[in-house]
Simulated assay, not measured.
Amino acid sequence: MGVTQKWEWGRIFRRARVKSGLSYEEIAEKTEVKGASALQIERSESVYEMFPEREYEEDGLSYSAIAELQRVFNKTDDVRAAYDCIIATGHSLSVKETRVWVELLMSDADVSRGIVREEVQKFDELRTKNPAESVRRILDVHAEYESIFGWE
């Protein structure tokens, strides 16, 4: 499912949740939408919060890549900041590339090209593509993020 659909779901779930006063879990139990778990509802609402004016890039990150960011960042504003950093590089990272970047964020701040290559090699999808290109995209995103937020 794409960002547009998750944004719409987020808008609908938010409205229903606010009107009814139900929790994510209660909405998930009552809805007939297949696969609508409390976590999915919460993440959909987060996408809606991230882009209140639908200002997401059509060819930006997929919803699954955004979900990878949501997995590591607790606050919607932090997910949006990470999304904006990725988009600012001009790269549209795949889900696997986003997962590698997230692993780099959670690792030591002293990231070398060798560490990135090792991380990329863990993922089959990237191995079948051009790993050097994937490494470059991930490093570009990482450098952009570090230049804005820095490591203290």
Rank of each mutant, 00 (worst) to 15 (best):
T89K: 05
A65W: 09
A65C: 07
S37E: 06
R14P: 00
W9A: 12
D59P: 02
R127F: 04
R17H: 04
Y83E: 09
V111E: 03
T31P: 03
G2T: 06
D110L: 03
I115S: 09
A67S: 11
F51C: 02
E58F: 10
R136Y: 08
Y24Q: 01
E42K: 15
S94H: 10
E118G: 09
A38S: 13
T31K: 06
N130E: 05
R15I: 10
D84P: 05
L105V: 11
E55S: 11
E125A: 15
M106Y: 05
D59R: 12
G2S: 07
E57D: 14
W7Q: 07
W151P: 00
V100S: 01
S92Q: 12
E146C: 10
Q40Y: 11
I12G: 04
S94P: 08
H142Y: 15
T4S: 14
Y63H: 06
K30N: 07
F51K: 04
W151N: 09
R136T: 14
S20G: 05
E45V: 10
S62H: 00
E146R: 15
L61E: 02
V100T: 03
S112L: 02
R127M: 13
E152A: 05
L104D: 08
G21T: 03
G35M: 09
W151H: 15
R137D: 08
V120G: 03
S23L: 01
S92C: 06
I41N: 01
W101I: 05
K6R: 12
P52S: 05
E144K: 13
A82K: 06
L139C: 08
L93F: 10
E103P: 04
T89Y: 07
R11G: 08
F51G: 01
R127S: 09
K129R: 14
D78H: 08
F73G: 04
I148R: 14
V79G: 01
S92K: 15
L22H: 03
A28T: 01
I138N: 00
D108W: 07
E125H: 08
E68G: 10
G90T: 07
S62F: 00
E25I: 00
A16H: 06
Y56C: 06
S107M: 10
F73W: 08
S44M: 04
I86G: 05
G2A: 06
I138T: 00
C85Q: 13
N130Y: 02
E57T: 12
D110I: 02
V135A: 10
W7Y: 14
R136M: 06
V135P: 01
L22T: 07
V79Y: 04
V79M: 03
R11Y: 07
N130S: 05
K34M: 07
A36L: 15
D84W: 09
I86V: 15
M1A: 13
A65P: 06
I87Q: 12
V116Q: 01
E118Q: 12
Y24E: 04
C85T: 10
G90E: 11
S112G: 14
Y63T: 03
A143Y: 09
E97V: 08
Q5M: 10
L126D: 03
R17Y: 07
K122Q: 10
S46L: 02
C85Y: 04
A28G: 00
H142C: 01
S134F: 09
M50T: 08
S62T: 02
W101G: 01
D77C: 03
